[in-house]
Computed example of a mutant assay.
Amino acid sequence: MRKPRTPHNDRVRRVLPVGLAIALLVALVVTGDLAPTLRRPESTPQAADRAAPAPLRVAVVGDSLSAGRSHFSGNGLDDESWMTYAEGDGIEYVGGWARSGATPDQMAAAVRPISDVDVLVILAGTNAVRTGKTAADEAPAYEQIVDVVRPKRVIISRIPPYRFHAVGALRYNGDLRSFTESHGWSWADPWTIARDGDDWADGFSVDGTHPAGPAQYEMLGESFRRIILETRVLPSALG
């Protein structure tokens, strides 16, 4: 005997509560009552929102290549001071000593302590070559400059091509680099933009000793800027 069929109205009554439940769930989601459980978690702060590191406090010791148009850095930076173009946006110039014609031993005698120096840049030696002195002769002067300033990091720069004493300048650079590395300091060559082999690139220098003018000093400053900023990853020499 066949089982009696369920009346159509009864099936509708049984299905209807399920449909109501689904409709109610949809309504809750749309109105936002369940939205908190469906939202994505808040995104984490981006790196750009983090505080920028404090500027590097940079001191400079050198000769006319750093002193600028006035021939003495104590008169302030000018358009022929490479530091004019290196400072700002992560680099703070905090002083030092530079005078036209100065040798490293004269710099060592004149420089004074500077508080809390992150990076000391020494660009010196052209006048030592001019006066017949070697890097070995001037080595104690570099050490004294560093001892007086007591920076966290030291950059010793290659001197530029010296057209009138080319062989002496090359020898000085080679010996100065060995001396620098033996002390655990950073050796830098900001002059790659200015050289063609061992001589000046065309148009970069007029007198064979210095950059030609503000445009060339700006390029030198940008070169030094990159070198200085790269020292952030180096450990402090002061511990």
Rank of each mutant, 00 (worst) to 15 (best):
V149K: 09
G90K: 05
I145F: 04
R158I: 01
M107I: 08
R112A: 15
A188G: 03
M107C: 15
A86M: 06
Y93D: 12
R153P: 13
G88C: 02
E181T: 03
N173R: 09
S182T: 07
Y93T: 07
P151F: 08
D196W: 04
Y142A: 05
G197R: 12
A102F: 14
T192L: 13
I193D: 15
I114Q: 11
E87F: 10
P113Y: 12
R150W: 10
R112L: 12
A102M: 08
P113E: 13
L120N: 12
S100T: 01
Y172Q: 02
F179Q: 02
W82G: 10
S115F: 08
R158K: 15
P160R: 11
W191E: 07
G132I: 11
K152C: 10
A109C: 03
I155A: 04
I145G: 08
A86P: 05
D196L: 08
V154A: 01
E138H: 00
T180Y: 04
T131F: 14
V119D: 10
E80P: 09
A124Y: 03
E92T: 11
I159P: 08
M83F: 11
T180E: 03
V167T: 15
V111T: 11
S100W: 06
H165C: 10
P113A: 07
T84W: 08
P140M: 08
L170N: 13
A128L: 09
D196E: 15
V167C: 02
M83D: 01
L123A: 13
A135L: 12
Y85K: 04
V94C: 00
V119F: 02
R195I: 06
E92Q: 14
M107N: 15
V149W: 11
P151R: 04
A139W: 04
G174S: 14
V148H: 11
P161H: 08
G197W: 03
P190A: 04
Y172G: 07
A98T: 02
N173C: 01
Y93M: 10
A109R: 14
Y85H: 06
R171G: 12
R99Q: 14
Y162T: 13
F164H: 14
K152E: 14
D137Y: 04
M83A: 15
T134E: 07
G184A: 09
D118N: 14
V111C: 07
R171S: 15
I193K: 05
W97E: 03
A166H: 05
S182P: 07
D116Q: 15
T126Q: 06
W191T: 01
S115G: 14
W82C: 02
W82I: 00
A139Q: 13
T134N: 07
L176P: 01
G174P: 10
Y162A: 08
D196T: 12
I155H: 01
I122E: 08
G96R: 00
D175V: 01
F164D: 15
V94Q: 10
